[in-house]
């Protein structure tokens, strides 16, 4: 395998297109998309909040697939991929948990509301954190990879069941109605900004993932070298 380095033309292309997309996305979000009538400018946080949520799911899905692949093939690269995706998952689910209250405060006049989605992300965040803690608390690398793979699979399978139960729980304790619901009845220009933002965040995920994986590979190679010298 050729060692991926910063001169790799594909990596350069990826970075450059991400940069362009990000600038365009900022323009679309803050200039192109019209101001929401009832919520005002604060609604623009929606273009960050929902794509972050999407990337968290994507990261979790990558953890799930990589974990299955690891148990199947026992190749270290799958474990590295799962670990990298889990870290990015923590980052983006944290973003969801931060942008949620910022949005909720002016709109619902409360920092935290136990809406099904926000609650789900709280749980998701805990599962990601538990995953990373587990990784650090098992000394043997091979064993930690196996344990994390099992936990990654269990955690992913859990998500729909968590959502089901939270949904039902909220039904009997109704929350303030979200104006129109996220994503529904959007102005066409808002839709353009939203889908473009979704695309940009996905690209950001790919970019971070590839680089995190490279870092992981280098750090494993380094620790192997250290062990050889010891």
């Amino acid at each position: 395998m050729p060692s991926p380095n910063s001169r790799n033309p594909w990596m350069f292309l990826l970075g450059a297109s991400l940069l362009v997309c990000m600038v365009v996305d900022l323009y679309l979000i803050f200039e192109f998309a019209p101001e929401e009538r009832s919520m005002g400018h604060v609604q623009r946080i929606f273009y960050f909040h929902v794509p972050s949520a999407w990337v968290s799911f994507l990261a979790f899905f990558v953890v799930f697939v990589a974990s299955i692949r690891y148990l199947w093939k026992r190749e270290r690269k799958y474990d590295m991929a799962a670990n990298s995706a889990a870290e990015i998952g923590v980052l983006f689910s944290s973003l969801v948990l931060v942008t949620g209250p910022i949005w909720a405060r002016p709109v619902w006049n409360t920092w935290w509301e136990w809406t099904p989605r926000l609650t789900l992300f709280m749980v998701l965040w805990f599962i990601f954190i538990a995953y990373l803690m587990l990784r650090n608390f098992v000394e043997d690398e091979e064993r930690s990879a196996r344990f994390c793979a099992v936990f990654g699979i269990v955690g992913f399978v859990d998500v729909p069941i968590v959502y089901m139960s939270i949904r039902l729980w909220r039904d009997i304790h109704p929350s303030p109605v979200i104006a129109g619901g996220e994503g529904s009845g959007l102005h066409p220009d808002m839709k353009i900004a939203f889908y473009f933002s979704l695309f940009t965040f996905t690209l950001l995920f790919v970019y971070l993932f590839v680089h995190r994986l490279r870092l992981e590979k280098s750090s494993v190679a380094l620790s192997d070298l250290k062990k050889e010298m010891a």
């Binding site: 805990f126 587990l134 936990f151 859990d158 069941i161 968590v162």
Partner: peptide, 12 residues
């Protein structure tokens, strides 16, 4: 470790 792994998963 057991409660940290167990709680988020057993929330449903």
């Amino acid at each position: 470790m057991l409660p940290i792994l167990h709680f988020p998963v057993s929330i449903p």
